[in-house]
Amino acid sequence: MISINFEKCKHCTVCINRFKGYCISNENGNPKIDYMICNQCQKCIAICPHQAILMNGKQPIKIEKPLRIVADDLKEFLKRRRSIKKFKDCKIPREVLLEIASVAKYAPNQNKNIEIIIIDDLELINKIDRSALKFVLRLYNIFFSMKFLTSFIQLFSDSLPTIKKKMEFDLHINKHVVKENTQGLYLLIGNPKVPVTESSAQYLLSTMIIYAEALGIGSCLMDSLKLSINRALAIKNALRIPKGNKVLGVLAVGYSNECIVNIPQGYEINTSWNRKNTETIVE
């Protein structure tokens, strides 16, 4: 919870003026936090010149000098990053796994009730893999064992042949869902009924992915594991996932066993300026 240390507060009104009385108002010259509105974004902590606003009673760290990141280096770093589907059989130290998880708290999320479970027990990872493979098999049988259902689904989706081929690869060729030699799984857990929980989890994941890459550790998002764990009561119970919560995202990590030597070209995201239909705008 965010709180104010009134012994440090100089009544400068920086926080009050910044939020215009929305989540922090002026009460007899003192800032007052409206906890019904506050989403714990921590912006007030970041801008307080006197370090008088705290998170969970902890003093913020004063920024002594600006950090300058060379934009070209960052862009080159991002261009070279790829999702890794094959890892080396090399254990990641626990302190490194914990460090990757720790940077998630700096992600620009608005839900501070997301939990991260780190799994580095290879036996447990294998159990989750087997459970996920059974889940894929069940889905495959549902979608493709009954021709009338397959035909019905194809009326709404033209990607069914692609899905079928991917499932068959996992079931008959790869015989795994978890990527080869995965050394760690991060499970992000939260209550999806709480506003912005799902979107906040994605911010945490993206921050962890970038930091892991900076440490020389590859990663891959595992939506198939997210789906299968959420539907496997035995796995959820084994992981002590609270009732009402669910897995919001799964990230597999390991030292890359893929040789990335090229930056792909030719794909662009469609981008446009101020696209609008003026006839539909009501003044």
Rank of each mutant, 00 (worst) to 15 (best):
I269Q: 14
I281D: 04
F6Y: 15
K164N: 10
K134F: 10
I260E: 06
E123M: 05
A238Y: 08
N30G: 05
I116P: 02
D89W: 05
N30V: 07
E180L: 05
S151Y: 04
I235H: 01
L54I: 08
K75A: 08
L185K: 03
I100F: 06
S272I: 09
T162M: 08
L227Q: 03
S224K: 12
L97K: 06
C41W: 00
A214D: 04
P108N: 05
K243V: 13
C220S: 12
R130A: 10
N109I: 06
L215W: 04
L251T: 00
N113D: 15
D34I: 12
I210C: 12
M222C: 05
Y22W: 14
P264L: 03
R138H: 06
P60D: 05
Q154A: 09
Y267C: 07
V136D: 01
I241L: 06
L122E: 12
L187E: 01
S102Y: 07
S157D: 15
E123R: 04
I84W: 01
Y140T: 06
A238T: 15
D170E: 14
A212G: 15
T197I: 11
A132Q: 02
R275W: 13
S199I: 15
S102D: 06
I163N: 03
E168V: 11
F87Y: 14
G244H: 10
L187R: 08
A232E: 13
F135H: 06
S256F: 01
C9S: 02
E213F: 01
K243N: 01
F152I: 11
L78R: 04
R80Q: 13
Q183C: 07
Y255R: 03
V70C: 08
P31M: 05
A212Q: 10
K166S: 15
F6D: 15
C44T: 15
E283K: 14
L251R: 00
G249L: 02
I153Y: 12
L155P: 02
C90M: 13
I260Q: 08
A238E: 11
F152E: 13
G184C: 00
A71I: 14
K58P: 00
T197S: 05
L137D: 04
R130G: 09
D129K: 07
A214F: 09
I92C: 09
N257R: 06
E99N: 13
K246N: 04
F148M: 15
F156E: 07
T280Q: 10
L155S: 12
Y267K: 06
K8S: 09
N262L: 01
I114Q: 05
F143C: 07
L98C: 10
R138Q: 11
F87V: 00
S256T: 09
K165S: 15
K75C: 10
G244V: 11
L233Y: 08
